[in-house]
Nucleic acid binder design. Structure first.
Lengths: 209, 209, 209, 209
DNA sequence: CATGAATGAGAATTCATTCAT
DNA sequence: AATGAATGAATTCTCATTCAT
C-alpha cells in the first residue's frame, strides 16, 4: 500500500540484489552438498551455511532440488564462459581440443566441491536431464563434438568414428579420473595429466597418415 | 536405548537354501533399485518385489545399504567369473584387452538394471568404497591394468603412460557410453561399438612403431 | 546415512515463550508417563496429550528420554526451591530434618504422577544417573546429609553413623512408603505419617543421652 | 502315536528334566536381564545366553514377562527358604529382626544380578503386583511385619507404630542402600553395614524404657 | 522336544515445506 | 523481504511371537 510509485525502480534494484543473494545461497549450498552429498544434506544445513532462515530459501528457490540444479547451471555457465572467452583466440583445430580437455581438468580441479556435486550427485540423476539447467551442461559438452567435427572436415581426424563417441571418450576419461581424484585422492593433481590425456585422445581420433 | 547388532544374527546359519533366498531377494531388490534408484527405493518396495515381509529382509541383510552393496558383489563376481573363464583361453596380449572391453560392454548391456545401479548409484558412493563388496569391483577393474602392463612388458604398449590412466580411459569411456545409453537410450546397443572402442583404445596405448 | 544432530537445533532460540511451551509439553508428557510408564508411552501419546504434532516435540526435546529427564529436572527444581524457601526460616537443627521429611512427603503426595515417574521409572535408570538432570535430584538429597552433619557437629546426632547411611534411611523409608501408596493405594495419605516417620528417624540418629 | 504305553513314566521323568531346564533358562535370562534391564533385553539374547533356540523358550515360558516373573519367584523362594531354615533356630525376638536384615543384605549382596532385576525392573512394575510370583515376595516381606508384631506383643517394640510402616522402613532402607550399591558401586559391600542398620532400626522401633 | 524361518505390528525419528506475522 | 514455528508424511528397523517340520 505504501510502496507504489517507486515500485518499478525498486524492483530493478532488487533484481540485482536478488541475483546476488541467490548466488550467495548457492555458494553456501555447494559447500554442504559437496561435503555430504545431496540426500544427506538438509535444508537446515544449507541455510545455516548461507546464514539465512530455512523459510527464506524458499523465497529464492522452489525446492532442494532446484538449489542443486541451479548450482549446476551457475557453475557450468561460468565454465562455459571461460572456455568461450579463450576459444575465441584459438584457431588451430587440434588446439581447440587441447583447450577443452585442459579447461575441463582445471575447472574440476579448481572447484572440487562443484566437481563432487556434478559427478557424484548430478551425473546419475534422471530428473536433472529433464531440467533446463541441463541444457547448459549439454552445451558445454557439445563443444567436444564441434571441435571433433571441425577436425573431421579438415581431414585431421578420422571420419569413421562418431562425434558422440568421441565426446564419451573425452568426458568419460576426464570424469572417471576426476571421480578417482575426488574419492581416492589420487592422483594429487589431475591437471598434471593434461598433456598425456590430450596425447592419448589425439592418438585415438587422429587420422593415421 | 539402542542395542548392539550382534546379539541377533545367530539365527540364519548360512546354508545353500539360505544363499538361494538371499539371491532371490537381491534380484527383487535390483528390479526396484534399477528403476527408482537407491534413495527413492523403500524397503517395502524391495520386499514386495521379492515377495517377502519387510521384517524378513533383515534376517538376510543388515540394512538397505547392505542389500545394495550385496547386489554389487553378487553381479560383479559373476562378471569377473565370466571374464576369467574366457581369459584362460586367450593368450594374445592385444586380445586380452579386447576381451575386457567386450566383456564389460556386454555385461552392462545384458544387465541394464544392474548397470543402472552400479553406474548411477554406486559409482559416486563414498561408503561403497569402504565396503568389502567394493574389493570385487576393484579386482575386475584391475584386469585392465594387468592387461596393459603385460603389453608394456612385451613392448606392444607405450611405456610412457601409467596403467591407472589407461584404466581410467577404458572404464571412463565404457561407463560414460553406458550411462548415456541408460539415460538417453542412445545408442540402441552399446555392444555394437565394441570394435570401434577397442580400436580407439588401442590407438591410444599402442606403441607407434 | 545418519547425520549429526547438531546441524539442526539452530532454530528454536530459547526465549520465554519457548520455555512456557516446553513446560506445557512436559506437563502433557507427565500425564502419560505417570499412567503408562516410560516404555509403554509413545511419542504420539505424549503429543496428543500436549496437543502438538509429533514432529513438534522434537523442536523442543531431543528424544523421548530427554523429555523424561527434563520432567525430573523441572519438578525436582520446584521441590528444591520450595525446600530452600522455607529452610531459610528454620534455624533449629532438628526442625530442618523435619522440614525435609515433611517436604518430601508432601511433594510426593501432591504430585502423584511425578512420583510415579520418579520412583517407578527414573530411580532404576542407569542412564538417568549420567544425565545433567540427575544433578538436581542429587542436590535435593544432599540436603539430608547436610542436615544430619549439622546435627552431628552440634552433638545432637550420633557421630558413629555415616551421613550417606542416613540419607539411605530417610529416602528409602519415604520412597518405599510412597511406592506402596502409588501401587497399592495404601495408606490413603502418606503425609499423615510425617510425624511418626520423623519420630522414628530421630530415634535412629539422635544421641542417646 | 508311537509313544503311548511309556507315556506316563516318561512324563514324570520329564517333569524333573523340565524343571531343571526351566531353571537353566532362568539363569541364562538373569544374566542378560541383570546386565541390560528388562526392556533392553531381547528374547534372542536370553536364548543365546541359555543356549537354546528362540522358539524353545516358549515351550517353557509364556512370554518374556513370564520369564522375568519366574526369576523373581525362583530366587525369592530360595531366599525365603534360607530365612525359614535359620529362623527355625532363633527364638529371641530381637534376633529374628537381625536375621531378617542380615539375610536380605546378604542375599542382595550375593546375587547382584538378581538384585538388579528385582530392585530396578520389578519394583516399579505394576503388572508384577498382579502376578502369582509376587505372592512369594510378599511372603518374604511379611516376615518383617510378623517379627515386629511379635516384639510388640512381648512389649519390646513400640506399640504406637504400624507394622507396615516398619516394613517400609526396613525394606526401604535396605533396598535404597542396595540400589545405591548397584548403580554407584558405593559402598563396596553392603553387608558391612548390617550391624549399624540393625542398630538404627532397633532404635526406631524399640520401646524407650 | 526342538527349532529355523517368517512376520505383524509398531515406534521413534527425520525433514522438506508452509504460513502467519 | 525475512523468518520462527509447526507439521504431514514417510521410512527404516526392531522384536516378541507363531508354526510347520
Amino acid at each position: 500500500m505504501k510502496q507504489n510509485a517507486e515500485s518499478r525502480k525498486t524492483k530493478t534494484v532488487n533484481k540485482t540484489k536478488n541475483r546476488l543473494k541467490k548466488i550467495a545461497i548457492l555458494e553456501g549450498a555447494l559447500e554442504v552438498f559437496g561435503e555430504k552429498g545431496f540426500e544427506a544434506t538438509t535444508i537446515t544445513a544449507i541455510c545455516k551455511s548461507a546464514k539465512i532462515a530455512d523459510a527464506t530459501l524458499y523465497e529464492y528457490f522452489e525446492s532442494k532440488e532446484d538449489v542443486l540444479f541451479s548450482i549446476a547451471e551457475h557453475y557450468t555457465r561460468q565454465h562455459l564462459d571461460n572456455m568461450k572467452r579463450v576459444s575465441h583466440f584459438i584457431h588451430n583445430t587440434r588446439e581447440k581440443m587441447r583447450l577443452i580437455i585442459q579447461s575441463y581438468l582445471e575447472f574440476y580441479e579448481d572447484n572440487p566441491l562443484y566437481s563432487s556435486v556434478a559427478l557424484l550427485n548430478l551425473k546419475g540423476s534422471r530428473s536433472f536431464l529433464k531440467s533446463p539447467a541441463y541444457q547448459v551442461v549439454r552445451e558445454a559438452s557439445r563443444s567436444i563434438v564441434d571441435a571433433f567435427n571441425e577436425g573431421v572436415e579438415k581431414r585431421i581426424y578420422r571420419d569413421d568414428i562418431d562425434g558422440y563417441l568421441v565426446r564419451n571418450l573425452v568426458l568419460g576419461f576426464i570424469e572417471h579420473l576426476t571421480i578417482q581424484w575426488l574419492l581416492v585422492k589420487r592422483p594429487d593433481k589431475i591437471s598434471l595429466f593434461r598433456d598425456t590425456i590430450f596425447d592419448m585422445v589425439m592418438q585415438s581420433i587422429e587420422k593415421k597418415s
